[in-house]
């Protein structure tokens, strides 16, 4: 008798509370996915549009859909200017990344490991290019190059890009150096490693993830940059400035091809990194 009454008592409130509980779940089940879908559609539509129109059998302008073709993908350099601009972007991005990453890594190590005069001042100055509005920086640099009598061109673009990439490299690598236990380098020295050996066999491998991240960030920033490039390029065109200029008279479909290819390439890198990471973790876990 007491058992049955207990059973009904526990059932009752459950039944009563069931309805509002269910409705709350109902709201959550459709609202969150809907929100996510809208957000992704909003983000992806321009990319999808760019991608689809890279297959457009276009004439001079690439605005109206005129039929599907692989011609743009197979003949990127049929539109020579696109190809040259893209080549310039790769050259500028690669060179600026190389210089900024090398210098930035050295600066980051020095800032963390050594105490010297103006150390905090230098730290602060390195933040300036990040904090200054880009257009001010661009105009300032342009004026500077003019005053110094430097011919604008690839060199000035590389110099400008190296400058703003440097700040990002220092910040990224510095975070990594700070977490590096100085005892590891001491252990290297203690175990008969000369300073050079300790750097290449202990310090560098341990900093490498930070350095790679910094290099990728630099390249992305440089490849993407428009304002600073536009002010300091002279007659040289990089991919972003080319797209901007040709927008007035119609962007060729080859530009869509390059943009899509860059996007796919970036996604591929991320995927490969994720997969290797996951498999490595799995391997370590299984051991």
């Amino acid at each position: 008798m007491s058992a049955t009454s207990a059973a009904t008592r526990t059932e009752l409130p459950a039944a009563r509370e069931g309805k509002p509980f269910k409705r709350r779940i109902g709201l959550g089940t459709w609202l969150l996915p809907a929100y996510v879908t809208i957000a992704f559609v909003f983000l992806l539509i321009p990319i999808v549009y760019t991608f689809i129109f890279s297959f457009n059998d276009s004439l001079k302008s690439n605005i109206v859909w005129r039929g599907f073709t692989f011609d743009n993908w197979l003949g990127i350099c049929n539109q020579v200017e696109v190809c040259i601009a893209f080549g310039n972007s790769l050259l500028v991005g690669g060179t600026a990344t190389l210089i900024a990453t090398t210098l930035g890594t050295m600066i980051a190590i020095a800032l963390v490991r050594y105490r010297f005069r103006f150390r905090s001042g230098i730290s602060l100055l390195l933040f300036l290019p990040m904090a200054t509005p880009e257009v001010v920086l661009a105009a300032g640099l342009a004026a500077e190059f003019l005053t110094a009598g430097v011919q604008k061109g690839l060199i000035t673009i590389i110099l400008a890009h190296t400058m703003f990439c440097l700040s990002f490299v220092v910040v990224t690598v510095k975070a990594r150096v700070t977490t590096l236990d100085p005892a590891l380098e001491e252990a290297g020295r203690d175990l008969y490693g000369s300073p050079t050996q300790v750097f290449w066999r202990v310090t560098f491998p341990l900093l490498l993830p930070g350095i790679v991240a910094a290099a990728m960030l630099s390249f992305a920033l440089s490849f993407d940059d428009f304002i600073i490039t536009y002010f300091n390029a002279g007659i040289v065109q990089t991919f972003p400035t080319y797209v901007y200029i040709s927008a007035a008279r119609g962007i060729p479909a080859q530009a869509n091809v390059i943009a899509s290819a860059v996007f796919i390439f970036a996604i591929a890198i991320v995927l490969i990194a994720q997969i290797t990471n996951a498999s490595r973790r799995k391997r370590l876990g299984l051991n």
């Binding site: 005892a183 252990a187 341990l206």
Partner: peptide
């Protein structure tokens, strides 16, 4: 040679 307090084994 030293055995460090934190061991300082090379993690890589």
């Amino acid at each position: 040679n030293t055995v460090f307090q934190s061991y300082a084994l090379f993690p890589h």
